[in-house]
């Protein structure tokens, strides 16, 4: 991602998967790490049940762009969002997929594709697919190492209710570990 002074991220899925919240949490973390950050989201009919997305632009310089055009990092939690946005990615952009929902993985360079059954892990190990978005954050950071895992955890806890602290910590850690597995492979 050296070619861009501004890095573009898109978090996508269907309404209810919490992709907007995960983009806000990641933006919080980037802010803490001293980046200039712009975070936006799509609203409206699109965001209720249909495709939903949260976006981040960040870098060391002032950010003039108002929206993401070609993501360097695309998180797709649904087949629809994956199909819709994969064509937008930058030449060296990576796609991070939840293979639980995305049966048909995009046909791109394997080096740019990272997939794990995030929703299944959340269901099996955390007992609720509501934790998928936080698990995905850990997974993204495990792959990209853009921010410190500690700062990311603090940002997560600042945006979730106290009674879910432990579950969210676990989700974040579990996602991070899942990324490590891919690297070993």
């Amino acid at each position: 991602m050296e070619h861009n002074t501004v890095t573009q991220m898109r978090f996508s899925g269907f309404g209810g998967q919490g992709v907007v919240l995960s983009s806000i949490i990641f933006a919080d973390t980037l802010t803490k790490q001293g980046y200039n950050v712009v975070q936006t989201q799509s609203y409206g009919i699109e965001a209720r049940g249909g495709a939903s997305r949260g976006e981040i632009l960040f870098g060391k310089e002032e950010i003039n762009y108002l929206k993401v055009v070609s993501p360097d990092i695309l998180l797709a939690l649904s087949q629809e969002s994956c199909d819709k946005y994969v064509k937008d990615i930058s030449p060296e952009g990576i796609v991070i997929c939840d293979s639980f929902y995305i049966e048909k993985l995009p046909e791109i360079n394997k080096k740019q594709l990272f997939a794990a059954p995030l929703t299944k892990i959340a269901l099996d190990e955390l007992g609720n697919d509501l934790f998928t978005n936080i698990l995905a954050l850990g997974f993204i950071n495990g792959i990209t190492n853009l921010v410190s895992q500690k700062n990311l955890e603090e940002a997560v806890l600042a945006r979730v209710p106290e009674r879910y602290y432990e579950a969210n910590r676990k989700a974040l850690q579990r996602g991070y570990e899942e990324a490590a597995k891919l690297k070993v492979n």
Binding site: I24, A27, N36, V37, V38, Q39, T40, Y43, L66
Partner: peptide, 9 residues
């Protein structure tokens, strides 16, 4: 709307 709903550091 763009700026009202945007988040920035």
């Amino acid at each position: 709307e763009t700026i009202g709903h945007m988040r920035e550091n």
